[in-house]
Simulated scan of single mutants.
Amino acid sequence: MSNNMFLRGGLNTAADDGGGSSRDWELRPCGIVVQMRDTSSDTIQAGPLIKVKVSYGGSIHEVSITAFSTFGDLKKSLALGTGLQPQQQRLLYRGKEKHNRVYLHDAGVRNKSKVVLIEDPSSHQKRLVDSRRDEAIAMACRAVADVNEEVDKIAEKVFAVEAAVKSGRRLKDSAIAEPTELLMCQLLKLDSIKADGEAKSQRRILVRRVQKYVETLDMLKIQNETSNSQRTVVTTSWETFDAGLRGSTSAPLQQRGRVLSQTSTSSTVADWEWFN
Rank of each mutant, 00 (worst) to 15 (best):
Met1Arg: 03
Ser2Pro: 15
Ser2Ile: 06
Leu11Trp: 10
Ala15Thr: 05
Gly19Leu: 10
Gly19Cys: 04
Arg23Phe: 15
Trp25Phe: 15
Leu27Trp: 08
Gly31Arg: 09
Gly31Gln: 05
Asp38Glu: 08
Thr39Gln: 12
Ser40Cys: 06
Ser41His: 11
Ile44Ala: 02
Gln45His: 10
Ala46Cys: 02
Gly47Pro: 14
Gly47Cys: 07
Pro48Glu: 13
Leu49Arg: 11
Ile50Thr: 03
Lys53Ile: 14
Ser55Gln: 14
Gly57Ile: 10
Gly57Asn: 07
Gly58His: 15
Glu62Thr: 10
Thr70Met: 12
Leu74Ala: 06
Leu74Met: 02
Lys75Ile: 04
Leu78Gly: 01
Leu78Phe: 08
Leu80Pro: 13
Gln85Met: 13
Pro86Trp: 00
Gln89Val: 09
Gln89Lys: 04
Gly95Val: 13
Glu97Phe: 01
Lys98Glu: 10
His99Ser: 15
Val102Thr: 15
Leu104Asn: 03
Ala107Ser: 07
Ala107Phe: 08
Ala107Tyr: 08
Gly108Lys: 04
Gly108Trp: 12
Ser113Gln: 02
Ser113Asp: 07
Glu119Met: 04
Arg127Cys: 07
Leu128Ser: 01
Leu128Cys: 02
Leu128Ala: 08
Val129Tyr: 00
Asp130Met: 09
Asp134Gln: 12
Ala140Trp: 06
Val144Pro: 08
Asp146Thr: 09
Asp146Glu: 10
Asp146Phe: 00
Asn148Arg: 14
Asn148Pro: 11
Ala155Gly: 02
Ala155Gln: 08
Glu156Leu: 11
Val158Gln: 05
Glu162Met: 01
Ala164Met: 05
Lys166Pro: 00
Lys166Gly: 03
Ser167Cys: 04
Arg169Leu: 06
Lys172Gly: 05
Lys172Arg: 04
Asp173Phe: 00
Asp173Ile: 03
Ile176Glu: 05
Ile176Tyr: 08
Gln186Leu: 15
Leu187Tyr: 11
Leu187His: 09
Leu188Ile: 06
Ser192Asn: 08
Asp196Gly: 09
Glu198Ala: 01
Gln202Thr: 06
Arg203Asp: 05
Arg204Pro: 00
Ile205Val: 14
Val207Lys: 07
Arg209Phe: 09
Arg209Thr: 14
Val210Glu: 11
Val210Asp: 01
Val210His: 12
Gln211Cys: 13
Glu215Gln: 04
Leu220Ala: 01
Ile222Ser: 01
Asn224Glu: 02
Thr226Lys: 13
Thr235Asn: 08
Thr236His: 09
Trp238Cys: 03
Trp238Pro: 05
Thr240Leu: 15
Ala243His: 02
Gly244Asn: 09
Ser250Leu: 14
Pro252Ala: 14
Leu253Tyr: 06
Arg256Phe: 09
Gly257Tyr: 14
Arg258Cys: 00
Ser261Pro: 00
Gln262Ala: 12
Thr263Pro: 00
Ser264Pro: 11
Thr265Met: 04
Thr265Val: 02
Ser266Gln: 03
Ala270Ile: 08
Asp271Ala: 09
Trp272Thr: 06
